[in-house]
Design a binder for these strands. Structure first.
Length: 159
DNA sequence: GCCAACGTTGGC
DNA sequence: GCCAACGTTGGC
C-alpha cells in the first residue's frame, strides 16, 4: 500500500465536503506529474487531504483511494472550468481517481508546523516553489505526521 | 529547439 | 491583494 497527499482549496472542496458526500471523484488535475502519480494509485492507498489557500493551510484529514484512475470527463465538458479540447473520450489526456472519506484529523496540522520537523523536510510539499497538487508520501512521513497529530502542540515534539 | 510572454498556484 | 515560482504556449 502506498501513501499520498492531495491538495484542495476548502472553499472549493474541503474535508467537510468529502465527509458529507462520503466519496468523490478527484477531477480537475491538469498537471502531468500529478496525473502520473494518480495513475499509480491503487484501491486502498491512503491519502492526506491537504487544504491549500486556507486559514491555515495544512493537512486536514485522511481519505482512501476507492477507484483507480479513469478518464477525467470534465475535460471534454465545454461548460466545465476544467475543459481541455485536447482531451477526448477516445484519447483522454487527463485522469482522475475516486477517494472516500476516512476521517478528519483531530486538528488541522498547519503547513507552518510541518516545516518545523526535520523528519519531514524531504516532502515535496515543503520544497520551495513546489506546486504539485498530488504527491507521494513515504510510510515514515505518514506515520510521523500521525504522531504529530496526537502531539497536539505547536512544534513541541522532537524529531 | 530556444526562450519570452503569459497564466496559474498557493503562501503570506 | 501581492508576488515568486512554475508550467505551458507559441513565435521564430
Amino acid at each position: 500500500m502506498n501513501y499520498w497527499l492531495m491538495k484542495s482549496e476548502p472553499e472549493v472542496f474541503g474535508i467537510d465536503d468529502l465527509a458529507r458526500k462520503g466519496q468523490e471523484h478527484w477531477d480537475g488535475v491538469r498537471n502531468y506529474q500529478a496525473r502520473n502519480f494518480m495513475r499509480e494509485m491503487r484501491v486502498g492507498d491512503k491519502v492526506f487531504f491537504y487544504h491549500s489557500n486556507a486559514k491555515p493551510s495544512g493537512i486536514a484529514g485522511v481519505a482512501e483511494v476507492s477507484r483507480e484512475a479513469y478518464p477525467d470527463f470534465t475535460a471534454w465538458d465545454p461548460h466545465s472550468k476544467y475543459a481541455d479540447p485536447a482531451s477526448t473520450p477516445d484519447k483522454p489526456r487527463w485522469f482522475m481517481v475516486d477517494v472516500k472519506f476516512v476521517r478528519k484529523l483531530k486538528r488541522v496540522i498547519p503547513l507552518e508546523e510541518l516545516k518545523t520537523h526535520p523528519a519531514l523536510q524531504e516532502m515535496p510539499l515543503l520544497q520551495r516553489g513546489s506546486r504539485l497538487s498530488v504527491q507521494p508520501v513515504t510510510r515514515e512521513q505518514w506515520e510521523y505526521i500521525l504522531a504529530v497529530e496526537k502531539g497536539g502542540g505547536k512544534g513541541r515534539e522532537k524529531a
